[in-house]
Design a protein around this nucleic acid. Structure first.
Lengths: 345, 345
DNA sequence: CTGAAAGCGCTTACAG
DNA sequence: CTGAAAGCGCTTACAG
């Protein structure tokens, strides 16, 4: 009675089969009897045996591995992306290999080395900023005929990428507040010079212009240097600055839900009511946003849709070859309406 | 002029060396001239070549891979653990392979299959609850002589594990508040029947008893059914219940920082001041805790210390063989003092 | 210090 | 439906 089995050869010997039949049974190829297949399956189960991915990748040349490259795990939205990517990649029969690039900055660029040495069939870059380093990474991947797709790259990418359409989202939000009767908008903590802030301000401008308003007279952008990431405390300070303004906006669009919450508490502490005196919109649909009183209106990233689109691009590239060029996809975020907005007084 | 190189054999041919010299140069073995080593290194750099992990794992029998198994990515503390584990494992020359078990519940248990097929040299379980499934996983690993260590298992584990000493943490907190003069304690949202709540309540009891008090008369545990995870809103509701109590505790110990923050806002809304009327302690040292006004006292998980201890256990097991049994390590959390506590009125 | 053989655990392509 | 050869890309152990 054997106690453990570590190769298809041992399994074959144990079952009195040839190693080739065992291999075929494991891979579900035809040309092997149903009885043999079942016998092999049962023995694998019994011994907890799994064929070596190394032997397999060496001979078969399909490793089934997909490299997934994150910048850092700093936001809840990024975390959600991981979970979805893991699910999508596994469901398609591949295995994800996760790497964090930020940690690697200090340790030399072995993220890509690892992917190459593992002979991944494709790489998904998530939230990665443009840099000399990442440009070089991509050149190396191309050399090895490994295709790459981009899930929300922080810079411009010519193809094989999925973006969240922040411009459309903010235009939507602005239209919504215009329809409620708001005339003067406050943007809070949205840095127009940052790659993520620029399209958001553009969306506000576009909606105002489309409604026949002059953007220069319809909104004020409040921002000042603060510790990153922008949080509750920064929102709290913004409330003070806002109240000190000679002309106060009635519709407030915050950079994220935490700033929106801090802003709301600051305003409430000063005796103002939301949405009676101010309408507030957050961004990110972070758990916090539904826990405040009143619950915050916000913008949802549609992570599942974005992740699915990016994964689909990668699968296409893996299956059609690394030379393929797929158009950039833009996903529209979804506005989440809750209790923090109303008509201005 | 070759444009790409995919194996040590190609590299050797290109450099006019034997494949064996190339292999030795790559692995930094002695018995190869410095000039040859440098030549090989330069060519690898030039062609972006990395030896196949599959060929390597097959012949060398050391794959350098470590499986890291998480339950889910639901809390910031878990996320922090990932980052530390990645860093520690890489620094020791291994490569982490991350898997999320919760997603896999639905898809069949191929987490362990993946680890086994990748011939990992060890597995680190993080935050994993005891279950029939995980017991079976461990049996399978043992069969393959793959050692496993546990970073904060949610159930009892006889060895090779690191725990956060929640009992010590709560005893510390309680002693601190006793010293300030508090006589009556409120526990908020800490479920004494849960594996994480039980040791926390035990710590409070222990500190009270040690101070010569009767725990039965010194604290009240407020908890009621609520949507998980416990957050701001739940804390907000707890504030109301607390204020309705015939005898109000002055020292409040919340299950986590979000509940503590919600509690604080609820009390402030009702016209009470913190810490003048109530002293509040959170738990987790979540970013939120330093962003509230006043900033929350809390308990830090010492993630770095816990992760390092668990990684060290795993490295020992990998190097000393899977039969080794290392004692369970308990790490004491650190109390973070900020502005939310004071002497009772 | 360098070369040539053997073999890790698989799959592919061919033969029966 | 099953068997035996060859070879994927490496490293180990041996020979010089």
């Amino acid at each position: 009675m054997k106690k453990s089995i570590h190769s298809t050869a041992e399994l074959a010997r144990h079952l009195g089969l040839s190693r080739w039949s065992v291999s075929r049974a494991i891979n579900g190829q035809n040309g092997v009897s149903a009885a043999t297949t079942e016998q092999v399956r049962a023995a694998m189960e019994q011994f907890g045996f799994m064929p070596s991915a190394h032997g397999r990748g060496l001979r078969g040349h399909r490793t089934g591995a997909i490299g997934v490259c994150f910048r850092a795990l700093d936001t809840p939205v990024t975390i959600e992306k991981i979970a979805h990517v893991q699910r999508l990649v596994s469901a398609r029969g591949y295995r994800p290999l996760f790497e964090l690039t930020e940690l690697d900055q200090q340790r030399g660029g072995d993220v890509i080395n690892h992917f190459i040495s593992m002979r991944v069939e494709g790489v998904l870059f998530v939230d990665t900023p443009p840099s000399a380093r990442s440009a070089e990474w991509q050149k190396r991947l191309r050399r090895h005929d490994i295709p790459a797709a981009h899930l929300e790259p922080l810079g411009p990418v010519p193809c094989n990428a999925v973006h969240l359409d922040r411009t459309a989202a903010m235009a939507d939000v602005t239209r919504h507040l215009l329809a409620l009767g708001h005339e003067y908008f406050g943007l809070l903590g949205i840095d127009e010079k940052s790659p993520l802030g620029q399209p958001r301000v553009a969306g506000v401008r576009a909606a105002l212009t489309a409604a026949g308003r002059d953007p220069r007279e319809c909104f004020v952008n409040l921002d000042f240097p603060h510790p990153r990431p922008a949080g509750l405390r920064y929102g709290h300070e913004l409330a003070e600055r806002l109240l000190a303004l000679p002309r106060r906006p009635t519709a407030l669009l915050a950079v994220n839900d935490e700033v929106a919450a801090g802003l709301m508490w600051g305003l409430q502490k000063a005796g103002h009511a939301v949405p009676r005196d101010f309408s507030i919109f957050g961004f990110d649909n972070f758990v916090l946003s539904e826990q405040t009183t009143p619950a915050l209106c916000t913008v949802d990233h549609q992570v599942e849709t974005v992740a699915a689109a990016a994964a689909e691009i990668l699968f296409q590239l893996v299956e059609r070859g690394p030379a393929a060029r797929l158009p950039v996809v833009r996903i529209a975020p979804r506005i989440v309406l809750r209790e923090s907005i109303g008509a201005p007084r």
